[in-house]
Amino acid sequence: MTLLSVQNLTAGYGQARVLHGVDLTIEEGEAVVVLGANGAGKTTTMRALAGLIGFGGRVEFEGSPLAGLRPDAVVARGVSLVPQGRGTFPHLTVLENLHVGAALRRDKRGIKEDIERWCGVFPVLAERTGQAAGTLSGGEQQMLAVARALMSRPRLLLCDEPSLGLAPKIVAELFGILATINREQGVSLLLVEQNAELALALAGRVYLLEVGRVIASGTAAEFREDETVRRAYLGY
C-alpha cells in the first residue's frame, strides 16, 4: 500500500523557488533515500512535507492530503521529521526532550514504555536521562533527535542528513539503528543524505534530485551498478 505519494511538489522561500515539481512515493514499510548535491532541494522537500513551509502540488499521506497543515497537525497524522542539525532542546534534559516528543499523546503508560524502549535502542541516552541535551556530544544529540521524533509513534520518519558532522563510527551506529527501526518496528523511512554509500546500504529505493526535480529513480541495487551515479555520488 502506498504510504506517501508526492506529485509535482513545488516550494521555495519568498521569491526564490527551490522545488520545481518533485514526484516520489513511499510504500508502507519501505526505506527510501533522496540523494542530491547541495542546493538540489533535499532539505526543502523535507521541510515542505513536515509542514514547516507552504508548498504546491499534491501530497497525500495514507490517502489524505497534507497541504495546509501546520507542523503539529502533520505530526498528528503520523509523519515526524528529524531536522538537519539542531533537532533537540538544548536546555531541557534528555528525559524532558523525549516527553516533548510525545506532546500529542495522552497514554501515560505507553509514553513510559516508549521511553524505555528507545533508551534500550539508544543506550547512550539511558545513561544520561537527567542531563541537559546541550551538554551531549553531536552524535548523542542526533540520536536524541531521532528518539524524540520516534516518541510521537510516527508511521513515516523523515531524516534530514542525520550523518552531518558526525564521526564515521557514530554514523555507522546511527544507520544501523535506523535500519533496525525500519525493519523491526515497521516505521517507514525517508532519508535525505549526502553520504550516498551508507544511504544505499540502508535504503531499498533511491530518488536522485537535481535543481528541484527528480532526475532519476530506482532500486538501491540499480543505483550501485550505475556508472554515472557511482562516479558522481560514490566517488569510485
Binding site: G51, P71, G87, F89, L92, E96, H99, G101, A103
Partner: peptide, 25 residues
C-alpha cells in the same frame, strides 16, 4: 506540568517543538 514543559520547549527551540507536535501558536 505538560503545558510548562511545552512552554519551555517552545522557548528553547520553537521549530523542533512544532515538529514534535507542540501547537506553538
Amino acid at each position: 506540568t505538560r503545558l510548562g514543559l511545552q512552554m519551555r520547549a517552545v522557548a528553547d527551540n520553537a521549530e523542533s517543538a512544532a515538529l514534535s507536535g507542540v501547537p506553538t501558536g
